[in-house]
Each structure stands twice: as structure tokens, then as C-alpha cells.
Design a protein around this nucleic acid. Structure first.
Length: 294
DNA sequence: GTCCAGGATACTG
DNA sequence: CAGTATCATGGA
């Protein structure tokens, strides 16, 4: 077992609410306060059993202890997944004086952006979610994972890995259409896979840029990646706290509900509301999304 | 049956 | 350049 110290403002229960938002989720399981997550590190399958105790995440390895290197990689994944390296003080200070964020932040304080550390997963999940409702997006993802992902069954439970880009790079559009992807989405997903096989597109390369605008411009040049998808990926995978998917329908609904509006806010109204969020847009959006899950 | 979903692109005037 | 059609299915 390893122990990962959590920062001062960390609320595991709130993170669990987010992780448990879909009953079609198969990339992790939540049971009795534990999160189970299968990873492949250093060529070995590693099952994590994560809980929270004594201001730390406790990570157990039910399938047996992996090598020390693999344990380190797993710990890195967890830090990344729960955004543990971030100091949220600035966000809370900003939100304190924001009429819309204040109640949301006080309600869910300690929630962190639950990320998607794998770039391929972040990009393709975002593509799957374009234009359709979340329920159907999860249906698509479930089929995608069950068809192309690797799995292991342990103690009566089956755990899945997200498919890899080299696997998807070699399939055809029609194969994804069978899973009810639109032809366009199938092309986008396969296109992204092939760009990653080339090595031109990688998380490492994107993180080297370390400038919001440069990453955004690079991503939106890829077919199927518009502004919303670029911001979503920067927010969920690249730790860009200034990423702002301002056209997001979920954001619009959350704002409408928070402000008691009968209609959705306009783009100009959103820009005005968010004027003070500078540098914390991603967290503002994530907390507003959280407000939609009861 | 109608309308809208965690949008993006191709086409039209 | 802005506006419109298309995708393709599920859930309310």
C-alpha cells in the first residue's frame, strides 16, 4: 500500500459524487467508499483500490504488489487524476466575491477537477460527447471500451482499460459506425489515433508548450477538435486552469439554474459573468457542472 | 410527435 | 463573412 498526502482543501466525498455520476461507467468502480481503477504501468496490469484516511489517499493493490517503479507511476496517475498538486486558495478567494460561484463553492468546497490523464482518452471521450446527451455519450464509450479495450476479472468483478491509440489507428470508419458512431465522429476518433501514432500529437508535446493559446491553436487545427473540445481537453488532461469551454451546454444550464433564469445566458452575458474568473475558469466550470448532479 | 443533447464541419449566399 | 444543413440517436 502507498499513501498520498492530500492538500488542505480536498474533499474525497465530493470527488466520489463526480466519479459516480454515470451508472454506465466502466473505467472505475465505486464501492463502499473505495474507488477501484485498473491501470497498465510498466507493461503490467495494476488494480488500485483507493480510499481516504488521515489526510491522505490510501492506495492498495488488491491484485498483488507491482514493482516499485509501477507503484510510483500509479501514484503519479492518482495525483494527476485528482489534481492534487493544485493550490485552490486563489480560486476560493476569487469565488468569495462572485455572486454566482460563492454558493456553489461553499457547497462543494474541496472538490477537485477529476481529470483524464490519458490524452487519447480525453480527446476521444470529448469527441464522443459532442452534440449528444451525456447518457448516449456514455453508451458509445461503453461500447467502444468493451470492443477495443483490455480487461481483467478479479474477485468476480471485471475491470477495463481504455483502448489505446495504436489499436484504434488501425480500424476502419465502418467498424465504429457499427457501434453507432456517426461517420464524422468515427473519422475524428481514428484521425486523432493516427496523429498520436505518428508521435506528432502527444501529451508531452502539448505540455511543453505551456501556453494556453498555443495549445488551443494546435489542438483546433486537428479535424474534429473545435474550440469546445480543445478547452475540455486542456481542462481535463493538461491542467490548464484557464481553459474555458464557454459554449458548453452543461455550463449554460448550470448558470441558468444558479441565477434562476428562464432562458439560457447569452454568450455576452457569460463573458461578463466570467470577467473576474481569470485564471480559474476551468474550476468555475467544474464546480458549476457539479451543481447539476443533484 | 417535438425538441434538445458536454459541437464541428461543409456548404450557401 | 454570417447563416444554415447535416450528423444520428436517446431521453424528456
Amino acid at each position: 500500500m502507498i499513501e498520498i498526502k492530500t492538500p488542505k482543501d480536498f474533499n474525497f466525498k465530493e470527488c466520489l459524487v463526480f466519479l459516480g455520476r454515470s451508472d454506465q461507467e466502466l473505467l472505475h468502480k465505486i464501492s463502499d467508499g473505495y474507488v477501484f481503477k485498473l491501470l497498465k504501468v510498466e507493461q503490467e496490469l495494476v488494480l488500485l483500490k483507493i480510499s481516504y484516511k488521515n489526510d491522505a489517499l490510501q492506495v492498495e493493490f488488491p491484485m498483488g504488489n507491482p514493482t516499485l517503479d509501477a507503484q510510483k507511476m500509479a501514484a503519479k496517475y492518482v495525483v494527476d487524476w485528482f489534481d492534487l498538486d493544485r493550490d485552490l486558495f486563489g480560486f476560493f478567494e476569487m469565488a468569495r466575491n462572485d455572486q454566482m460561484l460563492q454558493p456553489v463553492v461553499s457547497k462543494y468546497r474541496g472538490l477537485r477537477i477529476i481529470g483524464i490523464p490519458d490524452l487519447f482518452e480525453a480527446l476521444t471521450w470529448a469527441i464522443m460527447g459532442q452534440q449528444i446527451n451525456l447518457t448516449f455519450a456514455y453508451t458509445l464509450r461503453k461500447r467502444f471500451v468493451e470492443r477495443f479495450g483490455e480487461s481483467v476479472t478479479f474477485d468476480g468483478e471485471t475491470y477495463w482499460l481504455y483502448p489505446t491509440f495504436d489499436r484504434i489507428a488501425e480500424i476502419e470508419v465502418d467498424t465504429l459506425k457499427d457501434l453507432q458512431f456517426t461517420a464524422r465522429k468515427a473519422e475524428y476518433v481514428i484521425g486523432v489515433s493516427r496523429a498520436m501514432v505518428n508521435g506528432e500529437l502527444s501529451r508531452e508535446n502539448l505540455l511543453k508548450m505551456e501556453d494556453y493559446q498555443q495549445i488551443h491553436t494546435y489542438l483546433t487545427k486537428l479535424r474534429g477538435i473545435g474550440s469546445w473540445t480543445a478547452d475540455y481537453v486542456m481542462m481535463k488532461c493538461l491542467h490548464q486552469s484557464a481553459a474555458f469551454p464557454i459554449t458548453d451546454v452543461g455550463l449554460h444550464n448550470a448558470v441558468r439554474i444558479q441565477l434562476g433564469l428562464e432562458r439560457k445566458p447569452t454568450l455576452d452575458e457569460l463573458k461578463e459573468m466570467a470577467a473576474g474568473w481569470t485564471g480559474w475558469e476551468a474550476y468555475a466550470v467544474f464546480y458549476l457542472w457539479r451543481s447539476l448532479y443533484v
